[in-house]
């Protein structure tokens, strides 16, 4: 059997890490989930997981924020797949996400519908 795809959740909020993990399980995605609590830790882990991890990044984090982390990850590896997600949608942030090289930008709702959808479509692409 092929290795299961890896998903790395980088979010400073523990609730978001746990709930998103649950939502991924509930959606029936066959993936291996890892987590990181900050941009700095996330970039390190992303480097170890190269090349096949899908990285889910929160935009707002103390220290290195999601946009910076995304840029760093993309600098290490153009082909990493990064989803930037946020609780507050904002057109300026969306443009920033694009400029940082994000593959997707989506909103975190209670059921994480958009984030899970983005992971799914990156796995199949």
């Amino acid at each position: 059997m092929r290795n299961r795809p890896k998903v790395l959740i980088i979010d400073d909020s523990e609730a978001d890490r746990i709930l998103l993990h649950e939502a991924i399980k509930k959606a029936g995605l066959e993936v291996e989930v890892q987590t990181a609590r900050s941009g700095e830790e996330g970039v390190k882990k992303a480097n170890e997981l190269r090349p096949e991890a899908i990285i889910v990044l929160d935009t707002l984090m103390p220290g290195m924020n999601g946009f910076e982390a995304c840029k760093k990850i993309k600098e290490m590896d153009q082909d990493s797949k990064v989803i930037l997600c946020t609780g507050v949608v904002d057109a300026v942030d969306a443009a920033k996400a694009r400029a940082a090289g994000a593959d997707d930008y989506c909103v975190k709702t209670d059921d994480y519908e958009a984030v899970v959808g983005a992971i799914k479509s990156l796995i199949t692409s």
Binding site: A91, A94, A97, D104, C106, V107, E113, A114
Partner: peptide, 11 residues
């Protein structure tokens, strides 16, 4: 960016 924002707002 516009499309992603709209999708988010709709959700």
């Amino acid at each position: 960016a516009c499309q992603k924002t709209n999708e988010g707002i709709k959700l």
